[in-house]
Every structure is written in C-alpha cells, then in structure tokens.
Design a protein around this nucleic acid. Structure first.
Length: 594
RNA sequence: GCGCCGUUGGUCCAGUGGUAGGACAUUAGCUUCCCAAGCUAAUAGCCCGGGUUCAAUUCCCGGACGGCGCACCA
C-alpha cells in the first residue's frame, strides 16, 4: 500500500536546504529535523499565511504561551493519565501490548487504565492472561508506564515537575479567564496560537510526517452552546471539497461526496455550523498554499476513533506517497476543557451571559442563627448550616411543611440533626437575576504546519523537459515560495553585474525575497531557482544598459522576466520591475498579462 | 519496542581483508552567453564502539540512524 518516501523529494529537500535530520554529526536523533534556509523560509510563509487567514481575516486574537507547563495543568487536561500507556512485553515473542487492553479484552473489567499498573499486573496473574500474539503467559511481566509527554523539572530539584506541551491548545485554555476579559466577555471569540509541541513518540517515522517536536497552528473558538445560529456560512458555502463521512467509510462501495460546504451542512453531514465554516476556510487555505485539491479530502472520525471529549470530529487529509495523512483536525470539544480547568483550578472558567430582560425569581434562602446552632452542635455547626442551605435549595417544602414552630432534619456525616425552623432563618426571597454563568463550548481547528509543508513540497514537485533537458521544479504558489525572484546579470562583465545588483537592491527595498546569482551559465542559474520553487527570475542584459547590438535583442532600459512554470519570458522596463514583481507575488497580476 | 533490509565526498552510486572510484553538485581559471555546454584544476567520503587479524571501510557482535512490516499514535 505504501510506496514509501518519494526518494527524489527527500534528496531534493536535503540537497537544497528544505529540511535535514538534526544533529547528524552525533549520529542523529530520531524524530527531530532542522529546517534549512529554504525550509525555514517556506515554513515562515506558510505560518504567516495561516495567521492572515485564521487570525486576521476572522478577527481572532493570537497569543504565545510557554512550551513548558507545570504538572497540574496536565492533570486537569487529562494528559497525565490519558497520555500514559501501560505496556506489557511478552517474554516469549517480544511483542509489546497495551496491558489495560489485554485485561479489558479478557475479563469483565472495563476502564482498566484507571486501575493503575499494579492492580493490572495482579489481574493478569489472577486470570492467567496470555500474550494475544503467541499465547505465552504474561504473569509476572513488568507493567511499564510510558507517557508520551517529555518531562522536566522546573527549578532545582524534583519538587516541581513540568512537561513540554503535547499540544498548544492547553496554553489557550488555561488562560481563558483573562482571554475572555480581553474579548469583553462576548461570545463567540477565537484565540489562535502557532508554536511547537512535543510528543515522545515510541517510533517516529516517515520523515517530517511523524516527529517528536513539531509546529501546530491551532484556533480555539469559544461559542455559546445555546446560540444555535452559528456563523454566516455564505462566504464559504460554495467551496467544493470531498466529504468522506462515516456512512461512506462504512460502505465499501462509497466514495467521498464531492459537494459544497453549504450542502454538507444542510444535509446534516457536517452537523455543526462552525465546523462546516472552518472546513470551508481550511479547504481554500490549503489550496492557496499549494496543496493539490484532487489529493485532498475531509474525513469524519469513526465513533471509536474520536477522543473522549469530542462530539464530532473531521480531519483534513492529503494523499502523500500513496497514503492518506492527517493534515488537520476539526473537533467539537464541547465544554470539556474549560470544565476541567474550572474544576481543578481556583479560577472561574465561565462567562456571565446577560439576559435581554432581567428576570425575577423566587429563591428559598436560609440565614441560620449561629448563636443558637453554635452551642447546640459545636464543631459541626458550620456543616449543619451548609446542609440547611443545600436543603433549602433542593427541598424548600421541608421548611414550608414544618411551619413556624416545627423543625427540619439534616444529615451531617451520617448523623441526623433536628433544627427548629425558627433558627434557620428560612425565607423565600424575590431575587432579580440579570443573567447566568455559562461554560462556553469549544470548536477547535488544529493544523500541523510540518505536515502541511511536506504535503506542499510533495504536491508541487514537478519534472518536465526543456529543450531536451530534464528539469526539476517546485510549483510553489508565489505567496509561499521561499524566494520570490532571482536576479541575474546575463554575464558578470561590462557593468551588467552592477546594474543587476541595483535591481536586486530595489526589489529587496520593496520587501521582496531576492536571490542574486552571477555564477556560471544563465541556464544553470534558472534551474537552481526552479529547484527551490522561485516563481520568477529577472535578467539584466545588454539591452538593459542600452548596448544591445540590434533592436531584436530588446528595447533599451528593459529586462527579461522569466516565469518558472512555463519558462516563458517577457521584457519590461527596468523601473517597473519592483512594482510588477510585487503584483505578481500578491496575485494582483498574472504573468500572461505582461 | 519487535522483525527484515540498509548506512561509502554536499547529493546519487560502484568497489575492496593491504584505508577507495565514478557521476552530478560546489569553488577557481580559460572559453561561451537567455535555459544544467566544453577544457583544466581544486575541495571533499568508508555511521559509531568492541572483537577476529600482521592488517577491518570490507568479516563477526553491539549501538545509533534510515526504510518497510507489526505494535503505538490520548
């Protein structure tokens, strides 16, 4: 099924400086890559393009959180337990298995992960469980914990453990109370972050596609779960993409549905309107950075595949080297994350939502007479008072039925206490409520930048023939190409070099990324730029300096502009070069219009 | 983590129990000048550790790294 890495691309990536394995001088270390000059620039451009589309154009706000967070953050997020795998190795065949899965599959225990490794080891012995692969008994084998998070210590000693974040999202969630303040407590609002995340993968594979340190671009969109309206889909409703829903996946004969985002939502295939909206945004964005949309699809997670918190989840996938790889996930996380941090921390992770009209409600309250309860119940008096308050809320009739002279009974620590109603200060008050606290739900488009970069390289890789010579080039969109324009003197003599340097300087001043090259033959220089995806080259020749031998060589004061994809050339006046190239880069002008 | 295969200049490869050769690329010179031309020269390599041997890049063992398969991927 897999055809493996495309060798030509891997070779080009290393030779031309897109990416290489890190620390090769020391034998290299699996799962870490260094982006070379071309790769770093391409990555920057992709990130900035993402920023423009998902932050600026959407009116969202970007933050930049630390990559190391203290342990309690990951206790709350569930990564400390959930990211922990219990592995047991077979003494006979050497296969590693999830110990909790072995227990769950062969006993009545469910959720074995919560039992802890010791108990799981005992159960394996009690039930004489065997290796699923070869049938050898697993009793007595060590249960090893393997947590996919990189651990470190904050400050000296080990009293304050911290972890490198396994996703950027938690950095947004933990700061929600303050972020809501920045958003003036108005839902919906979105917070983005681009940054590194770390996972200590057991077995990194496939070049950049599965690594231990990677870059994520995430958007956490906080929405009001009671507001059914959702976003205005009109700007993306006509975007067409393949939708591979659960039904199509489970039916062997079904292909993904090639439909518009609007239709996918109307049919109920993509139920949540926010998910639908960002699928549309993402499809357009992936196309803009050079992903081949005929090798792209949205795939819905099967029920067993979804994370515990996700009500629905769609992935963006691309076909690379014969496999479909995950480029992004679009998850409806409900209130899972905010509720967890609300529970584990001292902060309030809710939003106060004002009603259109204040409402007046009758609320039963108590105001216990502590001067009476104190002597009566001693140290338990405080708990009794709390129990009275709880009783008033849950069963106000108990007070009403007992009447002024009666008493109510509350249980504290298994002991029944009788309290005269007159001492409880029970009353039904009219309270005006102007709103309520709600926990926002979260819609999360989460993209892998490294995978996007690899996919773009793979999808833009071209080989063709020019004048009988083989040519390799990257058909990168001008907006993301590491270099926008190569500038060459036809020869480095007769003042051509000086003129070309001036042209390059003017272009750089304009903010364009320029490669200047005066070495060797002109054709060789064109090919060099082709290989790193430079979309345009400008060449200064004798016509530019007014010394062409005849008019057929070009009008005085003009240069040639050459297009990468077609190798076609046009002449334009030298003074128009900066503005023209800028327009070409920004897509405001196409080469054929020159 | 397990199994199979692999690792030779920057890149792609050949080869050998007596420390290596090509192609492409790079640099310099001559020449040419709008699509990888030619000539000359230069730079540059046997993944790491241990063993066997007079001698190991080569054979053996271990490791690292890579590819594929299995497992894993909240």
């Amino acid at each position: 099924m897999s055809e493996g890495d495309s060798p030509d691309l891997a070779e080009l990536a290393k030779r031309r400086g897109f990416f290489l394995q890190s620390a090769g001088a020391y034998g290299g270390v699996s799962g870490f890559y260094t982006f070379g000059p071309q790769g770093a620039s391409l990555k920057d451009n992709i990130e900035n393009s993402w920023r423009d589309r998902f932050t600026l154009q959407e009116g969202n706000m970007e933050i930049d959180a630390p990559t190391i967070m203290p342990e309690p953050v990951f206790e709350a997020s569930g990564h400390l337990d959930g990211f922990d795998d219990m592995l047991v190795e077979c003494p006979e065949c050497g296969e590693s298995h999830r110990a909790d899965h072995v227990v769950e599959d062969n006993t009545d225990y469910e959720e074995a992960e919560g039992l802890g490794p010791e108990r799981v080891g005992e159960i394996i012995e009690e039930y004489e469980l065997v290796c699923p692969t070869c049938g050898t008994g697993l009793a007595g084998q060590a249960i090893e914990d393997f947590n996919l998070m990189f651990e470190t210590n904050i400050g000296p000693g080990s009293s304050s453990p911290g972890y490198l974040r396994p996703e950027t999202a938690q950095g947004i969630f933990v700061e929600f109370p303050q972020l809501a303040e920045y958003a003036r407590n108005q839902l919906p609002f979105g917070v983005t972050q681009v940054g590194r995340a770390y996972r200590n993968e057991i077995s990194p594979r496939k070049s950049l596609l599965r690594v231990r340190e990677f870059t994520q671009a995430e958007l956490e969109l906080f929405i009001d779960p009671e507001d059914g309206e959702g976003p205005d889909l009109s700007s993306v409703s006509d975007v067409v993409a393949p939708f591979y829903g659960v039904d199509q996946q489970e039916d062997d004969d079904s292909d993904p549905l090639e439909i518009t985002v609007g239709e996918a939502h109307e049919r109920g295939l993509v139920a949540d309107p926010w998910i639908a909206y960002y699928l549309g945004v993402a499809a357009e964005w992936y196309e803009s950075i050079g992903v081949d949309m005929s090798r792209f699809r949205f795939r819905q997670h099967l029920s067993g595949e979804r994370a515990h918190y996700a009500a629905d989840c769609w992935d963006a996938e691309a076909e690379v080297d014969g496999d479909w790889i995950e480029l992004a996930g679009f998850a409806y996380r409900s209130d899972y994350d905010l509720s967890k941090h609300d529970e584990y921390s001292d902060e309030d992770y809710t939003i106060f939502k004002q009603y259109d009209e204040p409402v007046t409600v009758e609320r039963p309250t108590v105001d216990p007479d502590m001067s009476a309860l104190g002597p009566e119940f001693g140290g338990a008096a405080g708990d009794v008072a709390d129990a009275l308050e709880a009783l008033a809320e849950s069963d106000p009739d108990a007070f009403e039925d007992a009447g002024e002279d009666g008493s109510v009974t509350v249980d504290v620590d298994g002991e029944s206490h009788e309290v005269p109603v007159s001492q409880t200060g029970f009353a039904v008050e009219e309270v005006t409520e102007s709103g309520e606290h709600i926990t926002p739900h979260v819609v999360e488009p989460s993209l892998g930048i490294d995978r996007a970069l690899y996919t773009v390289l793979d999808h833009c890789y071209r080989e063709d023939e020019v004048d009988g010579e083989e040519r390799t080039f990257l058909e990168l969109p001008p907006a993301v190409a590491p270099t926008t324009v190569g500038v060459f003197p036809l020869m480095d003599r007769d003042g051509l070099g000086e003129h070309a340097r001036d042209v390059a300087a003017d272009l750089r001043e304009r903010g364009l990324s320029v490669a200047y090259d005066d070495s060797g033959a002109i054709g060789r220089r064109y090919r060099r730029q082709d290989e790193v995806g430079t979309p345009f080259c400008v060449t200064v020749d004798y016509a530019t300096i007014g010394e062409a031998e005849d008019a057929s060589e070009g009008a005085p004061g003009t240069v040639t502009v050459r297009e990468r994809d077609t190798t076609a050339q046009r002449r334009i006046p030298v003074e128009e070069v900066p503005a023209t190239l800028e327009a070409l880069r920004d897509g405001e002008l196409s080469f054929s219009e020159l």
